[in-house]
Each structure stands twice: as structure tokens, then as C-alpha cells.
Design a binder for these strands. Structure first.
Lengths: 196, 196
DNA sequence: TTTCGTTAGTGGTCCGACCATTATTCGGAC
DNA sequence: GTCCGAATAATGGTCGGACCACTAACGAAA
């Protein structure tokens, strides 16, 4: 027996849409054929075509405008990450696990970030104490220029925030910043670790 | 005017399915109500329910068995991920981000893992070359004992796997293992980094 | 030329029908 | 009583059509 030969219609449709995009070299913002056209050209019911389209819409790959059509869209991985997280975090409720991952991400950030590229580096100074942490790290993650990483951290941050996080003094972040600025990464990481 | 109040039906359905899972504390493998039941209970047409289900099926969050029902699914990186990735990885940017995050996670794993706790440490020896990487890292991530971290890596792994990943020789993983075993973490990390 | 209804095309939603597959049920053969 | 196989019921898979809501383009009137 062939192992997997029987793909569902909506999956075939997806493949063909993918090919259509390829062949016609569609760019972001370009319009796809209407649901009815696709339905006819691909020999599939409109409802099946819709199942395919809704799936990749949810992912953020396309955008549908009522009365206008379906358009290709610049894919941003963080859309799907958000969606996935609500399911992935389903059973990962352990505060410990969340904090571990969050710590790990921040550590990685401290290692990688180019401090020169951090905008609003001192935004956190003028912010409420409980928001300092986010205000400090957010621009740093943005400077890393990896939206996926940023989104993951943001989500973990959001979930763990509801738990009590130790609030650090301004001096803590000042020290952290200064370490990185002088490229004393290991010192920064050590300090960061001591706060968890 | 409210900015975005008008969610589509399938999106509402999605939310409610999520709540259903939450409230009833469904675990992986558990069965969801049938499409017809959901349709009735949520006051939505069956086709709308299907749009929602197909979307999260494509994501790999549920599994449908013809004649049986719809089941919550332990994430497995085969199936539709390949299809999905052909869409998602259209842009070079996305590939880079995925690989960066994957690299980062693995690096962290190499730093943290207690090699004594790794079960099936040499499973990867007897596996197809293209599966070596996963077979090597999976037990290590499991040994870290952080469900969240594991799931994140698994997802990223699944996507990036479908694209060209450099296949390493057995000696590469042997070396990696031996470094960690002798607690020469920095050597392991350096080796790992050289492969990306 | 401008304005404003009309109209055609599009996505959004619903309904009902039928098929394919699976698990269950039940009755007869042993 | 046990076992087996044929109905049966429940489920997902697919189709086609109907109608609504929204948008843009067109064309006639001012």
C-alpha cells in the first residue's frame, strides 16, 4: 500500500495554490484568483478551497478583503507563533519552565545584541518599576532583528509576568547596560543570572 | 467604530474550541466533539467549524481520523509541516530567523544538559543520515526536562528540517557527545556553531 | 465634469445531500 | 454460551447551491 497517497482535497488545493504563486511569480500584495475561480480551475468545491484559504489566512500568509479578493501578504512568523502558543502553553503551566525559558532567551540576547543598535536604550529609566524589565529588554530583542525570537520572548514574558517577578533596581539595569557596552558579556550574564 | 470587532465565524469557533480544551482539560490524544456536535453547540454551520478545524489541523495541533473523530495531537514534525513550510519559508528572511532560533536553542541545550540523564544517547547511530540531527538532540532536550523548551525546539526543528539542513557525519555527533561528556562545553558549542 | 445609483464580482455563511470509513450492535451458526 | 459476519450508526470528506454583505467599476443624470 502506498503510505500516504490519499491527501485531502484542501491539501491538494494548497499545493496547487503554492504552485500558482510560484509560476506566476506573485509578490506580496498581489491578488489571488477568486474562490470561485480557484474552485473551477482546480476541480474542487468552493468549500474545499475555502478550507485551504482559511488555513493559510490564519497563519497570516494571505489577507482576505470582503468584496475585493484574497491577497498575498508578507509573512511574519510571529503571527503563527502567537496562535500556536495558545495551544502549546496548554499544559506548560509550570512557572518554573516559563522562567527557565525566559531566562535562557534573555541570556542569549545579552550575548548577541549589538548595543550600538539599541534604540531607546534608556527608556526604562522613566517607567514604572514593574515595567522596567520589559522596557529594558524589549529594545534589545528588537535590535537583534529576529522577529521570531522577539515574539517568543514576548509571549513567554507575557505569561510569566502574571507571576511575581522580582523587581530590580535601576542600578541593576544600569550595570547590565554598562557591562554590555564595555563588551564584558560574561559579567552581564552573571549579573543577569543572579537575578533569577 | 470598533476597530476589529467583526471576527469571522471560524475564528470565533477557534476561540471556543480552545476554551473547550481548557475547561475540560483535554490532553494529547483526547477526542474533540464531532464536527456536527460543535456545529450545533457553537451555533455555526458545519462548514465554518470545518474551516477552523482544517486550519489547526494544518498546523499539526489536531489529527482527524475518518470515521472516528478529531483528536488532540502530540506534535509530530511530519505530515503537513512540509506543505506548510513551502509557504512559510518563501522568504529568505524567515529561513534565517528560524535557523537562528534553532541554533540558539540547541546551543543552550548543549550548555545545560546533564549528559548522564540522556536516555538513548546513541540512538542516532542507527538512523538515517537526515534524521541524525533530530535523533541526537531530541533525547538531550528531553533530558533538560523542560516541556516548553522542548516544544519550541520541536516546532522550529520541524520547519527548518524540510529545508536544506547540512547533514553531518557521525563523527560530528560523536565529537559533540564526547565534549559534553568531558564537560568541555565551550568546545562542544564551538563545534556546534561551526556547523551553521 | 461631477455625482450618485446601479450592477457585477467577491468573500462570508449557511444548509442539505451524499460518499467513505470506522466502530458498534445484534442475530444466527456452531 | 461463543464466535463470526452482516446490518447499523456515527463520523469525517466532499460537493453544490443558496443567500447575504461588502467593494469597486460603470454609466446615466445633473
Amino acid at each position: 500500500m502506498t503510505n500516504q497517497a490519499k491527501l485531502k482535497v484542501y491539501q491538494e488545493v494548497l499545493t496547487q495554490i503554492r504552485e500558482f504563486i510560484e509560476v506566476n511569480e506573485l509578490q506580496d500584495g498581489d491578488r489571488l484568483p477568486s474562490e470561485r475561480e480557484l474552485s473551477e480551475q482546480l476541480n474542487a468545491a468552493r468549500s474545499s478551497v475555502r478550507e485551504a484559504l482559511r488555513a493559510i489566512e490564519l497563519l497570516g500568509l494571505i489577507e482576505t478583503k470582503h468584496g475585493e479578493g484574497t491577497f498575498l501578504r508578507t509573512y511574519r512568523p510571529y503571527h503563527s507563533v502567537e496562535l500556536l502558543s495558545t495551544f502549546v502553553l496548554r499544559e506548560v503551566r509550570t512557572k518554573e519552565e516559563l522562567l527557565d525559558v525566559k531566562f535562557m532567551l534573555e541570556k542569549q540576547c545579552l550575548e548577541q545584541v549589538n548595543i550600538e543598535e539599541v534604540a531607546d536604550a534608556f527608556q526604562w529609566r522613566s517607567v514604572k518599576p514593574e515595567e522596567r524589565h520589559t522596557a529594558f529588554f524589549l529594545p534589545m530583542f528588537e535590535a537583534i532583528n529576529n522577529q521570531l525570537l522577539l515574539k517568543i520572548w514576548h509571549l513567554v514574558e507575557g505569561f510569566s509576568n502574571t507571576q511575581l517577578v522580582a523587581i530590580q533596581e535601576k542600578t541593576y539595569y544600569e550595570q547590565l547596560y554598562s557591562y554590555i557596552h564595555n563588551d564584558e558579556r560574561d559579567q552581564a550574564i552573571k549579573l543577569h543570572a543572579s537575578s533569577y
